[in-house]
Design a protein around this nucleic acid. Structure first.
Length: 869
RNA sequence: GGGCGGUUAGCUCAGUGGGAGAGCACUUCCCUGACACGGAAGGGGUCAUUGGUUCAAUCCCAAUACCGCCCACCA
């Protein structure tokens, strides 16, 4: 066996992944005989590319599924892609623009065809990126939200909710994205801080034009749609004016009332606010409360329109042009009282970046209050659990303040509403056009129908993901065995956008929570705590990291930065480099195993317990502890702890101490079996995190089975434990460290031949180990029967006086400090009286230990000075 | 305006009611029969500030400061 000195992941990972996939190791069939472990992958956008966030959310899923598969569970990770209406439509439009074609040139059918082409050709590139990262979902079951099956599920859900009266059509205020030409959900609106101007405008009283009421606004163009002025009911400044009317400048062609409403903030601006219900959410509420008219003054291009109310010369102007013209006109008329700088948060479309215009529009909505209640109950009674817990409060807060969900989008790419309109405009809702015609024939005596052009919000299809991918509404075996899944893993930013909706729809449609646990991994930021973004230029491509360090190292690198309660990872690339080094360590330890002269026995054969040395017993004890630690960490979603525990075991315990110990004569008879056994177990423990190198190593050492993927998870009961031996070994470690410390301080050459007899108080097997690490000559050799301390003393005796003096003085200072601290503590009556007895006893023992040490160092120091004198 | 995190070594972060930790970086030594992507030894911190609880606080509580996240109808 001639293995290269350096592990090269590029020659391993692709080959192994292909083997796994070709052999169907990721695939699983429903098996009611075994406990299920199902994770529905949050479907990435079909337009998406892998980014570091996938490292923190998708790696844990892969780890969990691999772990549960090894435990013998019916484990499957169900993948898929989201059609991502807005993103895809934007990409296709951009594509078309290069050819000088617009969406409308193409027409709806052609455009949708084009979007399909794009999705099939370029879409889903992220799936091959996931393969590079070692993610192993059940690709054979991959679904696309636009697939016929899932589309049928969407139609079925819509019809069902409509017939239950939970879906309705209404004129409501929605977020309009003028650039995207569509409505946008609240959750897809970003708030950005902007410097703006606050204009103070005087509205003259209708019945006394010499008197004014002054309001403050950042959006003068909306004055055209004003229907009232509102003041706070308790505001004495305006108490006398409530009920009177003012004229709307600059046109002064109509009068509006002054109303009192508690929504008004008396401290802001002038304490009086203009009310434009058609273009502002607060105003809309005020308008509803006071039964005010709600004229729109903006069209879909965000131009001023006189369609519903007279807008004078501003008709047809762009919103910003109208704003400036109106300001000029107000100034000309002397109605602009004041202009001040104002910092405000502006609503911006997450996708297009355009300023959102709240607009009244006829849209489809889902009534949420009744759906939200069971979803809240499930959280309150503990059936639904968030990890970390604080995300539960986000969920709770959102559901408690839930508003009806606008589900219609003015896009072409997506699930078209299963809604047709009769000639009189009455909607007919049905799963198919045939069914719709039948209904129309029956109810209206006509089958002339026009289909609603809108498509559904992407989250409408994502909301039923946990059961639509299992074949719902058909009753499939998958649905019966694999719903609900065991855990949902997703980013904290979509707890309400997605999680809450899946819970509501799962409870409503399936009658059962889609998952009991929601694990929210931290978000990934750069080392300065800034969000990673292309525009900032600080985005790190996981593909690059995988190429440079290996996918295993990327996974390990990011998992080691995860903390259970953390809400962010400040990603440090050097962690991936460290992990690459870690893998190289694994590789070379394997080389050592494979070059042992005696060869490795079978995977699971341990020598008789009596023949095990203390080093053997120690590493086996540590192995058992590590198995338990890793299991517990995975079960708690504490991936950082699992990674740390494995790191420590593999590198610092197995490689640094045990492998070294096996080079000692005494350990030779048992070492091959113990090395083989421990390394085989270690690879299985590590496999979920680092799938590739563990497979490569596992296949190279004695093993059972075809792939580590389906090897059994290590059983702690199979690993013998000997705490006393482990403790003895640890004291040898401490002694070895003391020896090495002396050697280093004395500047002894490491290769000076060693003669160190077995100290009387050190077990034989350990003595050799000590000698191996001490690597320093002691002359004359201590006599047999001397203690370890004698040996150390003999070593010290050869050191230069100055060095020893400095060393002793330093030790003494430290010991003096400890002794003084403990003496003070123990002479404190309150401490002795009130502290727990075992604590007091422990402190006393510590003090005694320090005093003894102090005395011996002191006398050594004295002897040193005496000998000089 | 509400809610929630964080502040520990130069950097990124663990951790505990009773002697401050890891990795990287740094200093020194070493290619010792797997590994220089390595081994060994070492230096380095008033655990943000103030007050409280306690025999005892880096840890529990409160306030403050700074950093960050989420929610919200200050036009």
């Amino acid at each position: 066996m001639d293995l290269p000195k350096q592990y090269d992941p590029s020659t391993v990972e692709e080959r192994l992944y292909r083997r796994w996939e070709e052999n169907g190791y990721f695939h699983e069939e429903p098996d009611p005989a075994r406990p299920p472990f199902i994770i529905c992958m949050p479907p990435p956008n079909v337009t998406g590319r892998a980014h570091l966030g996938h490292g923190s959310t998708y790696t844990p899923m892969d780890v969990l599924v691999r772990y549960h598969r090894m435990r013998g569970n019916n484990a499957d990770w169900l993948p898929g892609l989201d059609h991502a209406a807005i993103a895809t439509e934007a990409v296709v439009i951009k594509d078309l623009a290069r050819e000088g074609v617009t969406r409308d040139d193409l027409g709806r059918e052609g455009f949708v065809e084009r979007a399909w082409d794009w999705s099939r050709t370029y879409g889903g590139a992220i799936e091959s990126q996931f393969r590079v990262l070692g993610f192993g979902p059940d690709w054979q079951r991959s679904r696309f939200t636009m697939d016929e099956g899932l589309s049928a599920a969407v139609r079925s859900l819509f019809v069902r909710l409509y017939r239950e009266g939970r879906i309705y059509r209404g004129r409501r205020l929605v977020n309009w994205d003028p650039r995207g030409q569509t409505t946008v959900s609240d959750a897809e609106v970003d708030r950005v801080e902007r410097d703006a101007t606050l204009w103070h405008v005087a509205y003259p009283l209708r019945d006394d034009s010499r008197r004014n009421i002054v309001i403050a606004t950042t959006r003068p163009e909306t004055i055209l749609g004003d229907v009232a002025i509102a003041v706070h009911p308790d505001d004495e400044r305006y108490a006398g004016l409530v009920g009177s009317h003012v004229l709307v400048p600059p046109l002064l062609d109509r009068a509006i009332p002054i109303v009192a409403d508690a929504a008004v903030d008396r401290t802001f601006g002038t304490g009086a606010v203009k009310v434009t219900p058609a273009h502002d959410a607060t105003d809309y509420d005020i308008g509803t409360r006071h039964a005010l008219p709600m004229p729109s003054i903006l069209d879909q291009q965000a131009r001023i329109t006189g369609a519903e109310i007279a807008v004078g010369p501003y008709d047809g102007m762009d919103r910003y042009e109208a704003r400036m013209r109106i300001v000029e006109d107000l100034q000309r008329d002397g109605r602009l009282v004041k202009e001040e700088a104002h910092r405000m948060s502006l609503a911006v479309s997450e996708r297009t970046g355009d300023t959102i215009e709240p607009m009244l529009s006829l849209q489809w909505f889902v009534r949420m209050d009744e759906l939200a209640k069971p979803a809240l109950d499930a959280y309150h009674n503990g059936q639904l659990r968030f990890i970390p817990e604080r995300y539960g409060r986000t969920y709770e807060q959102w559901l408690e303040n839930i508003r009806d969900w606008n589900i219609s989008r003015q896009l072409w790419w997506g699930h078209r509403l299963p809604v047709w309109y009769a000639p009189d405009g009455t909607p007919v809702v049905a799963e198919t056009e045939e069914e719709a015609r039948e209904i129309a024939m029956r109810d209206f005596g006509t089958d002339v129908l026009v289909r609603d052009p809108d498509t559904l919000d992407t989250w409408f299809s994502s909301g039923i993901w946990p059961f639509s991918i299992l074949g719902w509404p058909e009753t499939t075996t998958e649905l019966q065995c694999w719903y609900p899944s065991q855990v949902l893993v997703t980013g904290g930013d979509i707890v309400f956008l997605w999680v809450a909706r899946m819970v509501m729809l799962g409870l409503h449609v399936m009658g059962e929570l889609p998952f009991p646990d929601v694990f929210v991994p931290p978000l990934v930021f750069d080392a300065q705590g800034r969000k990673m973004s292309k525009s900032l230029g600080n985005a790190i491509d996981p593909m690059e990291l995988a190429k440079q360090y290996g996918a295993d190292a990327f996974r390990m690198g990011i998992l080691r930065q995860m903390r259970l309660e953390g809400q962010e990872i400040r990603f440090v690339e050097s962690r991936c480099e460290e992990a690459r080094n870690f893998n190289n360590k694994i590789w070379n330890a394997t080389r050592y195993l494979l070059t042992l002269a005696e060869g490795l026995p079978g995977a699971r054969i341990l020598p008789k317990t009596q023949s095990l040395t203390i080093a053997d017993r120690w590493i086996l004890t540590r192995l058992r502890d590590t198995i338990l630690a890793v299991e517990s960490a995975y079960d708690r979603y504490d991936f950082g702890s699992a990674a740390d525990a494995l790191w420590r075991f593999v590198w610092y315990e197995f490689c640094d101490w045990y492998v070294e110990a096996t080079k000692i004569e005494d350990n030779r008879p048992t070492r091959a079996a113990v090395l083989s056994f421990v390394w085989n177990n270690a690879m299985r423990l590590l496999h979920p995190i680092e799938p590739f190198i563990t497979e490569e190593v596992w296949l190279a050492i004695p093993h059972d089975g075809k792939t580590i993927m389906t090897a059994t998870w290590p059983d702690p009961e199979e690993v013998p434990v000997d705490r006393d031996a482990a403790a003895a070994f640890e004291s040898v470690q401490r002694a070895a460290e003391r020896l090495r410390n002396l050697r280093a301080e004395m500047g002894l050459q490491p290769r000076t031949p060693l003669t160190l007899e077995t100290p009387a108080n050190v077990p034989a097997a350990a003595a050799a180990l000590l000698g191996h690490f001490a690597v320093a000559a002691i002359e004359p050799a201590p006599a047999a029967g001397d203690t370890l301390e004698d040996a150390l003393a003999a070593l010290r005796a050869r050191a230069p006086r100055e060095l020893l003096e400095a060393r002793y003085t330093k030790d003494l200072m430290r010991l003096d400090g400890e002794v003084e601290r403990l003496e003070r503590k123990l002479s404190n009556e309150a401490f002795v009286a009130k502290a727990a007895p075992d604590v007091v006893a422990k402190e006393r023992a510590k003090l005694e230990g320090y005093r003894l040490e102090q005395k011996s160092v002191q006398s050594a120091l004295d002897a040193l000075t005496d000998s000089v004198a």
